[in-house]
Amino acid sequence: MKQLFTTLGPRSKDQLGIILPHEHVFVDLRTPDQPGYAEADEADVVALMAPQIEAIKAQGVTALVECSTGGVGRRADMDLAVSLATNFPIVVPTGNYREPWIPEWVGRASEGELEAWMLRELNEGMDDTGVQAGWIKLSAGDDGITRLEERILRAAARAARATGAVIGSHTIKGRVVMDQLDIIEGEGYTASRFISIHTQAEPDFEMHKAVAARGAWIEYDNIGWVPDEETLPRILRALAAGLGGQLLLSHDMGWFDPAQPGGGTPRPYTTLFGSIVPKLREAGVEEAMIVRLTEENPFEAFAR
């Protein structure tokens, strides 16, 4: 049976509804060698982020995918604290970001060591929290995947193949996504278990279709960052092209930032259901497709 692995344990499809597939609870975009990197007081994180979770619970959201990975301040313990305080499941990744956000130990590790680390986090738990990683998050450079990023990706593909986990990658250029898919398939895994994060940043819509044609998920995750007048036509174009079965929608918002006083000012995760979904309905998108985009697709993408 497919399950979503969360901070509150595995969840089956009938236990969930709306899922936001790309958000952040805690993130530090400084490089890991900076003083104070990823350090914060748990009570401060809960105080700032619990109201953000309560706001989406009021909209009917039942789970959120945390996209902060290794190298950008992943703190599974902070995710767990916020989750417990709100009784709200959060899906946390293993993996690591791109250069230069790669810790020294990851840069030294072999593919086998990286694979073993990801497998341990997927199967046993992360950072002594007991929370199993729900998926693998990584990234690639805008100008092409580096040798170190490729090593991380190959290890991820092997760990994913062994567990059924999905791999999501912050990759801006569609041509780089295609290179990543070649590597994943070369390792014996499948493009259908890959999420092209930030697909909307690729200006060539033909690349969106090409990535989807390989079987991968495409993700439009800047909702709220840009006007609805930009977001709505993009979604409608994808639906008209028949991509609704592989489309994920989210905000890429939040979050507690330890580099900012008091964690900064979070941006809410509420625009999708506060604004975009009503406008999709007004545009004639059928309710079955709304459910697919906001419930079925995220579960199918991240469950294993």
Rank of each mutant, 00 (worst) to 15 (best):
I18M: 04
I18F: 04
I18H: 03
I19V: 07
L20Q: 03
P21R: 02
H22G: 04
H22F: 05
E23D: 08
H24G: 14
H24P: 12
H24A: 13
H24L: 13
H24K: 09
V25R: 08
F26Y: 12
V27W: 11
D28G: 09
L29V: 14
R30P: 00
R30F: 05
T31Q: 14
T31L: 06
P32L: 09
D33W: 14
D33P: 11
D33V: 12
Q34C: 12
P35Y: 15
Y37M: 14
Y37C: 13
Y37N: 14
D41T: 15
D41R: 15
D41V: 15
E42H: 15
D44Y: 05
V45E: 00
L48C: 03
M49T: 00
M49F: 01
A50F: 01
P51R: 01
P51Y: 02
Q52N: 02
I53M: 00
E54I: 07
E54C: 05
I56W: 06
I56E: 02
K57H: 05
K57T: 01
A58V: 04
A58T: 03
G60Q: 01
G60T: 08
G60K: 04
G60P: 01
G60N: 02
G60M: 02
V61F: 04
V61K: 04
T62M: 09
T62H: 09
A63F: 03
A63Q: 03
L64T: 02
V65P: 10
V65R: 00
E66D: 06
C67D: 06
S68M: 11
S68G: 11
S68D: 07
G70I: 03
G71V: 07
V72E: 11
V72P: 11
G73L: 07
R74N: 13
R74I: 07
D77H: 08
D77T: 09
D77A: 13
M78P: 15
D79Y: 14
D79W: 13
L80V: 15
L80M: 10
A81Y: 13
V82H: 01
V82G: 08
A85E: 02
A85T: 00
N87A: 03
N87C: 01
F88D: 02
F88H: 03
P89I: 04
P89N: 03
I90K: 07
I90P: 05
V91W: 05
V92F: 08
P93M: 04
P93S: 01
T94A: 05
G95T: 02
N96S: 10
N96T: 12
Y97Q: 15
R98S: 14
E99M: 12
E99Q: 15
P100G: 12
P100H: 11
W101V: 10
I102T: 10
P103S: 15
E104T: 13
W105H: 14
V106P: 05
V106G: 08
V106Y: 07
V106N: 07
V106A: 11
A109G: 04
A109W: 07
E111C: 03
E111S: 04
G112A: 12
E113V: 13
L114I: 06
L114M: 08
L114C: 00
E115A: 06
E115D: 00
